[in-house]
Design a protein around this nucleic acid. Sequence first.
DNA 1: GCGTAATTTGTCATTTTTTGGCATATAAAA
DNA 2: TTTTATATGCCAAAAAATGACAAATTACGC
Lengths: 145, 145
Amino acid sequence: MFRGQFIHKISKTGRISVPSKFRDNLKKKYRTNFLILSTFENSIICYPLPEWDKLEDKLSRLPQFKKETVEFERYLIGNAHECEIDTEGRIMIPSILRKDFNINNSAVFVGMLSRFEIWSEKVWKKSLVSSFKKFQKSREVIDEI
Amino acid sequence: MFRGQFIHKISKTGRISVPSKFRDNLKKKYRTNFLILSTFENSIICYPLPEWDKLEDKLSRLPQFKKETVEFERYLIGNAHECEIDTEGRIMIPSILRKDFNINNSAVFVGMLSRFEIWSEKVWKKSLVSSFKKFQKSREVIDEI
DNA sequence: GCGTAATTTGTCATTTTTTGGCATATAAAA
DNA sequence: TTTTATATGCCAAAAAATGACAAATTACGC
């Protein structure tokens, strides 16, 4: 499970080291050092490749020319980039994603159990403040669990 | 699998380099460097030759005189061009297709699993904005899958 | 058919981006 | 504090993308 928050620096070439706890989890639980980075709301979302593959498998069986499914595929798959964790524990975040999310000098890793997110530090801090109120509301959802 | 988004420049003669990840996939999975480019909605659609063959196969089993299927066939097959990836990893996009889709200085490659699309950068960006809401909605579909 | 112009192709040079690996710095653990 | 693990900075090498140009091919008018 991916848990916790880590702030790491990003190199000029767009490389950043994945938190070692996340790497351990990837290795033990998923036996991979491949990730899929995609986009979701205000951050990059990262899936272990095996998890992502399940999703693609289902998608690949949808009709090729039906409008809804094509659009769905385009945005889901079109934003999905495969990244390998190198021998130093780093990934390189594709420049398109860095641009889209304003990720420049440092980024925040946020654990989300079976996936994790990468945020621009600025956006993350802003979002924290504004989400406190929302959090109160999401309590209600949690109660149902 | 073809995944992700790449922006590449296009030469005066209409040549553009296919993203290296796509080339790898073509080589490994399909053992070909031939593509079929055709038209669909607002972009050029590109199939590895073996995938295209499957598609033709399916098309050939559709009723021969039904209006919709004939029209669809005419559109898809009639616009199909075979392209070879050269030693530098480039294809040349036929000028008809470039005109049709307003592809001038640069183009966006969008992965779609077993095929990919080539968009004019302008059109792609417009399309992104208008489809942002749909995109958010399609994320919810993931949860259901 | 032939000659000319336009387009396409092959090849190499240049630029830009990505990668691999090591050295240093920082943080965590003993 | 010392040791160990983790993260970062740096640089050279490799790969990828782009640019440029000449040769080959095709299209077109006569």
